[in-house]
Design a protein around this nucleic acid. Structure first.
Lengths: 375, 375
DNA sequence: TTCGCTTACGATTAGCGTAAATATT
DNA sequence: AATATTTACGCTAATCGTAAGCGAA
């Protein structure tokens, strides 16, 4: 299946759709990775261009006008036509190309694959994402069920055997808390503070080989389950900041942990053909570039001076050093290679709205996203 | 019926549609009122954003790729959904508002009404355009079949009786020639040169009360017929430059005539209620503003130094002086009030591509436009 | 050599984020 | 007073038009 993407030029319509569903500028803006004034301006511009008032606004209430309700139906169906039509065109255009299967666990990897698909569109490769869980990821790669895998370190232990790897991006590790948690307002936390909390364990042994970590009973198999569990109040979780991209729970807060970083790694079997121009080679290259670019769209690592841009990854894939898990309990999860981070090719120096940045949102995500209420 | 308009954010899709139909960047760009490089960039950006190559380009041929053909069907239906849906929403939003009927003859008046409808959208007025011909226009206004009329001077003689008028815009008068006519390459002509040609007469007496004008047998009833007749090789025609907006015959050239200007006039019965805030008052005001703004989007009057912007029209309608038709045959059609032209509110100082400038094009026009071949 | 698409470049416009202002409950 | 939207403002990115580049017929 081809990774879905949005039809270009439909940003304002999507903003309208989200606001029409949310009926709250602040929440809609967070969901859209926009600042609230930016969304206000977008809606105002949309109304001006269309020449109709679509929302009644008061400081306490936003509701659709009659014209807005009418346009909502039109816009919904049209966006559906455009997106599904574009996906169909993509699928047909990709037919006949060599397929490269990608095992991934979520936490923003869907975004990375979507971007990689766009990057690689002119080339004869067809990316086929396969969603899986932590426990199976490396096995699937070794057994040939997938051709490449997008791994998150240090949540997954070092691979062994005939697997080669390349680092695509290094992003801050975040503590995920419910919106009403005591730490929810913090812009960053230190590792010691994480030790005071109870975390949700990932379904892999040694996922957090750090002394002092305390876990709850529940263990998550899938990456997204950790976030759902946090939203459900089971406990807190650790994850890469990239997870903000595909899990926009409006009731979750992602708080960067000082000095802690997660690494997005592209892996493939060393026995596969990765010669220059091979399908797997193209896929790995595209995934690395997409990971770099996606990471570059994250807000800066608050609390530290160095920008959390993309990690410099050579265009050609190669093995990289992996972060070692120190026995020292206080500095666990820490990857202190800061200071040598190169920025992504299109790094935005502009400041970002907290906690999420502007970007693209799947309408399916929006329609189907959780409606869990505050506990 | 509500004036149709384009859904915002669909510029690139429309460019794609036109180019897919035209298969020639230059012609498509002229049709879209864009420069050819701008269209090239738009298409390139569209392909990049979508991640698919839509056209095979060689220096001598442009043709759709397979993906382009697929996307063409998607884009066509989606644009149709958006435009007709928007029109429906507009119609419903306008229901119940006081209607103001507008008699107009074409030559760009459709554009003006569309813009006026957008300008007046927030106000309780519903514009209802009624297409007519020169001969009936003033009668329809006097007899109450329409509430206002958009007149073109000096093609229509001075109105008499209980009709009040306001000038909305003054634009260059053009000589319309087939693309392969001897004058086709000229950026401007003088009145004496027009006297050497045979013109198509408008179906109104004294439409061109100028000595030295020579006419062909054919007489046009409707404004657009003059242009069709020119394309058919019947003869040449005179018309306001604004006519470029809604008649983009790729085989016609609009050549400004030195010193000759046409005047777009809004007329209404003096017996109607035009008190501040009345429906007719709103309509007249909106039409004046729209005429001003549309004229401001025209390229500058080549050959003369003064900008052909909008004529200063007071916000409140009132009678204005009309151009007198001099008996002097050499300076006919001349309106020498140059030098006091104020620019439109959003005048573009940027230079424009010849002969047409960027703007909005009705897809219906494109689909249904004439395919007359070169003689 | 001509035709026609692309690239380069300067300039304008649009859009976003921060901060301040405003309005309603 | 508190909360939520709008306005103001500086900056960045996108886009257009002119002019130059360049490849195919």
């Amino acid at each position: 299946m081809v990774v879905s993407d949005r039809f270009p030029g439909t940003e304002k319509v999507r903003s309208f759709l989200v606001l029409a569903d949310e009926l709250h500028f602040g929440r809609a803006a967070r969901y859209l990775h926009l600042s609230q004034p930016a969304l206000s301006q977008q809606i105002a511009a949309f109304e001006r261009e269309i020449g109709l008032r679509l929302f009644h606004r008061s400081t306490r209430q936003v509701r659709l006008t009659e014209a807005g309700r009418d346009l909502l139906a039109v816009a919904t169906s049209a966006i559906s036509v455009l997106d599904t039509g574009l996906a169909d065109v993509r699928r047909r255009a990709g037919a006949g190309r060599p397929q490269v299967r990608i095992g991934h666990v979520g936490w923003g990897t869907g975004q990375v694959i979507a971007r990689a698909a766009r990057v690689l569109a002119p080339e004869p490769v067809q990316l086929v994402p396969t969603y899986t869980n932590f426990g199976n990821q490396l096995n699937q790669l070794r057994h040939g069920q997938v051709d490449t895998a997008l791994l998150w370190r240090p949540y997954l232990p070092k691979s062994h055997g005939d697997v080669e790897e390349a680092t695509a991006a290094v992003v801050p590790t975040c503590l995920v808390v419910p919106w009403d948690h005591a730490l929810a307002g913090r812009s960053s936390v230190v590792v010691a503070e994480v030790g005071a909390e109870r975390l949700i364990r990932i379904g892999v042994e040694d996922a957090f080989p750090v002394a002092g970590m305390r876990f709850v009973e529940h263990t998550a198999d899938y990456a997204v389950d950790t976030l759902a569990a946090v939203a459900a109040g089971v406990g807190l979780a650790l994850c890469p900041r990239l997870a903000e991209w595909d899990s926009v729970h409006r009731d979750l807060r992602f708080i960067p942990i000082e000095g802690a970083e997660s690494e997005l790694v592209v892996a493939w079997r060393s026995t596969t053909d990765t010669a220059d121009g091979s399908a797997v080679h193209r896929a790995v290259r595209g995934l690395c570039q997409a990971g770099r670019e996606t990471a570059a769209m994250l807000p800066h690592h608050s609390g530290t001076a160095h920008p959390v841009g993309a990690h410099p990854v050579p265009g050609h894939p190669g093995s990289v050093q992996l972060p070692s898990a120190p026995a020292d309990g206080s500095a666990g999860l820490l990857d202190a290679r800061r200071g040598e981070h190169a920025r992504g090719p299109r790094q935005h120096d502009r400041a970002h709205p907290a906690p999420l940045r502007r970007g693209e949102v799947l309408p399916e995500q929006h329609q189907a996203r959780e409606r869990a209420h505050r506990r």
